[in-house]
């Protein structure tokens, strides 16, 4: 009888575990589909635009950069060409394979230099955005495990992303608040060495060619008490680029 009771309890426990597992899988599936929807919404297949980047340092010094931005394959390949200030005029970056390959072009010497990929973690032109922040978010799906956790905000889902074993990522974890209505992110929290390093706020979401677009993105760097705001001045989606647009040849033009 005792053995029977133990067996019943075990069966009950196994059932509970199964239900739990199914629930867990369902939550994970849901998290993945939220992430899929979010990356689909926030990363159109191709785009070109003009952006302004305002950096405010911890000592309250303000710098403004303006650049042309071109991207294809959902941000896998990005070309940035600086317009202002004069010091960096015509400087250009070609970022390919989600930040794995970065080339920088200096117009005064007409020199193209390939940066090692560890440079992708560094600040782009002193801003709070790193080079890889300019790239697409497709690698989030391959490099990170995603889970949905309870959000205290009624209008947002909350996803946590933690790196998969053996994947090389710049952040320990990410928390992303995703709007339940349009799947556009509201904000992203970046963690490094268990410290909340940066927060990216997506503001003034407008509809451009049927695609929700944050006209302003503000990156707060909590470690350095600085912030960078990226404003979209012009934007066009579903652009068909010439073959060879995202190449070193075009970088020098």
């Amino acid at each position: 009888m005792k053995i029977l009771r133990i067996a019943k309890r075990l069966r009950h426990l196994v059932c509970l575990l199964n239900i739990g597992s199914i629930g867990l899988i369902a939550a994970n599936m849901s998290a993945k589909s939220i992430l899929d929807s979010m990356t689909m919404v926030m990363q159109p297949i191709s785009s070109q635009g003009k952006m302004e980047q305002e950096i405010i340092t911890s000592s309250d010094i303000k710098r403004v950069f303006t650049f042309n931005y071109f991207s294809e394959e959902k941000g896998k390949n990005v070309l940035i060409r600086y317009i202002e200030p004069r010091k960096v005029r015509h400087n250009a970056f070609l970022i390919k394979n989600n930040g794995e390959d970065i080339w920088v072009y200096f117009p005064r010497t007409r020199r193209v230099r390939k940066l090692a990929s560890h440079a992708k973690k560094q600040k782009a032109q002193g801003s709070d955005f790193s080079y890889e922040d300019f790239s697409g978010s497709e690698e989030w799906k391959t490099d990170y495990r995603v889970k949905q956790i309870l959000s205290s905000e009624h209008e947002n889902y909350l996803l946590t992303l933690t790196p998969k074993i053996d994947s090389e990522t710049s952040y320990d974890s990410l928390k992303i608040y995703v709007n339940k209505l349009n799947y556009y992110p509201s904000r992203m929290l970046y963690y490094q060495d268990s410290i909340h390093l940066k927060t990216l706020h997506f503001q003034d979401v407008q509809d451009i060619q049927g695609i929700p677009t944050a006209m302003s993105m503000r990156m707060e760097n909590h470690a350095e008490d600085s912030q960078t705001t990226m404003r979209i001045l012009e934007m066009e989606y579903n652009v068909v680029f010439d073959e060879g647009f995202f190449t070193e040849r075009n970088l020098k033009k």
Binding site: R113, K114, L115, A116, S117, H118, A119
Partner: peptide, 10 residues
């Protein structure tokens, strides 16, 4: 040549 090996630019 220019590239990267084990986080070192070479």
């Amino acid at each position: 040549f220019v590239g990267e090996f084990w986080e070192f630019g070479l």
